[in-house]
Design a binder for these strands. Structure first.
Lengths: 214, 214
DNA sequence: ATAGTATTAAAACAACTGTTTGAATCGAAC
DNA sequence: GTTCGATTCAAACAGTTGTTTTAATACTAT
């Protein structure tokens, strides 16, 4: 089964799994190469160093995630009707479901890796993360700002961080069968939160949106 | 300055800082003891092992956080008026601001540690985390369920996870001066998200709460 | 078949890991 | 001043780390 994959892919798969479970530094190259059933030196031969392997594992999924998110967003934006908030949030959140790799019963491995990348102070990782991530975040922030006129930019950035945090945190340890329900709940949750920034609560606890013309 | 602290506290402080920056396994005892300006053997003398030190660093802040959260919640619940959603969320979120330790300009170190603890598959850490955390989460879930009748339990659990994820993610890398604004934004964001679970969107995009009697 | 390149394999490298040991040092109580 | 427990210290332990090296193998184009 996995024996048909190339050495590089076997290493990437094993490394992703182990990095997610144990962390980058806590995982040794010997663990990785043993799980991938390849020789120890193969990592340094194909990737150059452990650090380069970390970046490769990281980029492989993030590239795919970014691509899926942007494609879905562009499709919504190209519709005759301007997309509503839920549609934009869907484009951001739902592609994360596809990251479930292999028989990932105990959470999305890459979401765990993403959490670790955020928590680490590894400059190279942070540069790689923001170099790829920032562009996508800007795109979504713009789309949301259009669908939700009147929202303040700084606050919108913060709210997007809330959504990213909620997504990575919950997806990192959910079972594969719960992921769909979580995504739907999060879209609804986030949409309400975003709308609350341009609305004022009334006395009876109900919420009424403000009309703001630019 | 730091020389007046006991050896144990110096170790805990240095370990917390380094664990937050580099991770548990990536931080060596020699880094810690050097930063704390104590002898290498002091860690094993005072804590027994590196793993025990990790748990000690972890518990020190989490105990304080739990205590502050519950005290604030009980105070709200004991008022003559039943607390509204924002008050409950305040009790959960605002105490996290106090975790800023020392001159933490680049994020709350403990929030980074909490992210790592969630991401790790370390059984001891997970046991310690849920043993202390679950009780508090149950308490808040109950309070919210009372303030927001009609919310489904499973969905409420998920939404609490959203809030925890958003809180740890944003607080872990915010500057100390932004923390307050983030907390306020998150309270508003989360309250709107929670309320959306017991309301239905109407055609014009406005939101009207449902009245549900038990 | 043969030359040449890409890949894999086993072994060794120096550096670093957490932990343990036994002696030195401190600070009170008597 | 002396004794005794608590703490600190320098040194060494066995084991693991990422990386490099050198030889063997597999594969492709001629």
């Amino acid at each position: 089964m996995t024996a048909s994959l190339t050495t590089c892919d076997r290493i990437l798969d094993a490394a992703e799994q182990l990095f997610a479970e144990e962390g980058f530094h806590a995982t040794s190259l010997r663990q990785i190469t043993q799980a991938a059933e390849v020789n120890l030196a193969a990592v340094n031969y194909h990737f150059g160093s452990k650090q380069a392997l970390i970046l490769a594992v990281f980029r492989r999924r993030l590239d795919a995630l970014n691509k899926a998110r942007l494609e879905r967003l562009e499709q919504s934006l190209s519709d005759e009707q301007a997309p509503d908030l839920e549609e934009i949030l869907d484009a951001f959140i739902v592609p994360a479901l596809a990251l479930t790799h292999g028989s990932a019963e105990n959470g999305h491995p890459f979401m765990r890796i993403l959490m670790r990348a955020f928590a680490d102070r590894d400059d190279q990782l942070h540069r790689a993360l923001s170099a790829e991530y920032a562009h996508v975040m800007r795109r979504f922030a713009g789309a949301i700002a259009t669908a939700l006129p009147g929202v303040e930019e700084k606050q919108l950035r913060r709210q997007l961080d809330f959504i990213v945090g909620a997504l990575t945190h919950t997806m990192s340890e959910c079972s594969a069968k719960d992921a769909r329900a979580i995504a739907d709940d999060l879209v609804q949750f986030a949409a309400a939160g975003l709308r609350s920034a341009v609305s004022v609560p009334s006395v009876d606890g109900a919420v009424r949106t403000l009309e703001i013309h630019s």
